[in-house]
Amino acid sequence: MENRMVPEERMTAQACSGHLASVEDAIYVIGGKWKLKIIIVLQESGNIRFNELQRKVEGISARVLSNELKDLELNGFVKRVVHAEQTPVVVEYVSTDYSRTLKPVIGALAEWGKTHKIKIKEEMS
C-alpha cells in the first residue's frame, strides 16, 4: 500500500508562518497525553460523572483529570453541570457543541493512526 504525494502549490512564507501558528494553537489546546482521550470519552458517553470518566480514561490520576477538565472547560470543550438540587450534589461533565467540531479532526487522526500502524508493521516484517 503505497501513498504517493501529489505535489501541492508552494505556500508563501507568510502563509506558511500563519499555517504553523494555527497548528501550534490547535496542538496547544488539544495536545498532550489526555485531552483528546477525555474529549472522545465525553463525546461517546454524553453526561458522565468524574469517577466514571476516570475509569474510562485508563491510567489518568484524579488530579490530572481534574486539571485537564478545568483546562478543557476554559477552552469551551467541556461543560460542568452541577445538580445542586440533589443530595449529595451531583456533578457531571458533558462535551459542548464546540467540542463536537473536533469530530472530523479526531476521525482523520484515527484513520491516519490506523494507516500508520499498518505501514510500520509492514516495514518491520
Rank of each mutant, 00 (worst) to 15 (best):
C16M: 15
S17T: 12
S17E: 10
G18S: 11
G18K: 12
H19C: 13
H19L: 12
L20N: 08
L20K: 12
S22Q: 11
S22M: 14
S22D: 13
V23M: 15
E24H: 10
D25S: 11
D25C: 07
A26D: 05
A26Q: 11
V29H: 07
V29R: 14
I30W: 02
I30P: 08
I30T: 12
G31N: 09
G31V: 06
G32L: 13
K33Y: 14
K33E: 15
W34V: 09
W34H: 10
L36P: 09
K37N: 15
I38S: 06
I39N: 10
I40M: 15
I40E: 15
V41C: 13
V41S: 13
E44H: 14
S45F: 09
S45W: 04
G46F: 10
G46E: 08
N47K: 15
N47G: 14
I48T: 09
I48P: 04
I48V: 08
R49P: 05
R49G: 14
F50E: 01
N51A: 10
N51K: 10
E52L: 08
L53N: 00
Q54P: 00
Q54N: 08
K56D: 01
V57M: 00
G59H: 00
G59T: 01
S61P: 03
A62Q: 11
A62E: 13
R63M: 02
V64K: 10
L65Q: 02
L65M: 07
L65R: 02
N67E: 12
E68C: 05
L69G: 04
D71Y: 13
E73Q: 13
E73G: 06
N75W: 02
G76Q: 01
F77L: 06
H83L: 05
A84R: 06
E85P: 01
Q86A: 07
V90Y: 01
V91S: 03
Y93D: 02
Y93P: 01
V94G: 05
V94K: 08
T96I: 02
D97W: 06
D97F: 07
D97C: 06
Y98F: 07
S99M: 02
